[in-house]
Design a protein around this nucleic acid. Sequence first.
DNA 1: CGTGCCTTTGACTTGGGTCAAGGCGGGTGG
DNA 2: CCACCCGCCTTGACCCAAGTCAAAGGCACG
Lengths: 226, 226
Amino acid sequence: MLEAMRIIRDLIQPSAKVVRAGDMIFRAAQPFNTVYLINAGAFKLVSRSLDGREQIVSLKFRGDWLGFSGIAQGRHPCDAVAMDTGNISIIPYDTLTEACARHPEMMAIVHEGMSTEITHERQSLMSVCTLASLARVAEFLCAWARSMHQRGLRADELTLRMTRADLGNYLGMTLETVSRCLSRLSREGLIRFGERGRRQISIPDLERLEQFVIGGLPADGQTAVQ
Amino acid sequence: MLEAMRIIRDLIQPSAKVVRAGDMIFRAAQPFNTVYLINAGAFKLVSRSLDGREQIVSLKFRGDWLGFSGIAQGRHPCDAVAMDTGNISIIPYDTLTEACARHPEMMAIVHEGMSTEITHERQSLMSVCTLASLARVAEFLCAWARSMHQRGLRADELTLRMTRADLGNYLGMTLETVSRCLSRLSREGLIRFGERGRRQISIPDLERLEQFVIGGLPADGQTAVQ
DNA sequence: CGTGCCTTTGACTTGGGTCAAGGCGGGTGG
DNA sequence: CCACCCGCCTTGACCCAAGTCAAAGGCACG
């Protein structure tokens, strides 16, 4: 992934931009002509339906692309919002397609990015459809940790950059349920809250948390109820 | 879309294959090296988690691509299964990337295909996360109808090619709930069951069904309870 | 040191899951 | 041609996970 980012820098030399929490990278319905590569920070993609339902459809981090979903309709179908300060490379789509035509390795990178995005959205669907809320929250934390690890960041100390309401929206449950699930995971010792507030979560044993997702708690009668 | 299929035929002249209900086009974990373009038929993509949860993550029809999700890992992440007799073009991925490098319009078509797929998966997530089961079933039917219409097929007479269990799996609910929701929609006059069994559904007024998804029933006290 | 947002927790309600009992229809074999 | 079977579908009764509503505690910032 770092490799890919280096190749893009070499072949395209894109300009970059610093963003702050709350900044919109693009908005739904805006004409599509640019994609972005995340150098740092965390971003959410928010879809809105005609009748005002709002859904966080994806979370994106360093190495991820923003904007591919706009290709099909020539307009972005969702908002992209920075969740904290970050840095993105700005890549005109024309430039990108030209680079793809000229350099097979560039096309490979872009296709891989889109393919990853497809797979990722499907995993979200799978999680929402097949897991109970407690396991869903646990899996979300595992995925976040794995994702951080894979990007070379520390994976045992997560700093969630979102409110419980956002989390709940993304995971398909209410903010109260998110809160209860996190409390429960903490009570079970599967996670711990950090000193810097309840958005900081540490995972003492990722292995065990992953086991919990697929198998639930070992049935030994030791676990607290509710 | 038909335009795109013509261009592909002209530029690549892919071989085609007839498939029958139940045939696997590819299986999860198989090495990725081919993509498929659907000429006719209906297909489901099925993901399986390590612990055996199974999820239908997408349904595909004429004009859709099969296999892009395998690019990222070099292996298909899911099974692709034909839901009835169909016909697919077989396109080696190498051939496709070469055609993309040589012909900008080919690259545009491929990128559009992937982009559409990303957007589509997000809409599923949105539907599962923000709609109650009755509205979800209704929206599913609307989407199927729109999708058929867009492909030049008749949109007021759907023949679902799946069991209630598959439907429920795809929509994130049990088969009993699907059954109850369909019965309810029928009782409300929003859909009708065909003579050829309860998998054939006609939509007398698509407009009204779409209104129902976003607004629920008009509150006039006429509607039956449960 | 207040004011407002975020989070937690409790009590209650409910949509949809679970379990169980038929019903329907098409295919097979007697 | 009929009887039976088997897979799919529907419906009812019951129950529970998660939603809703409400109250209060914490934290951050002016």
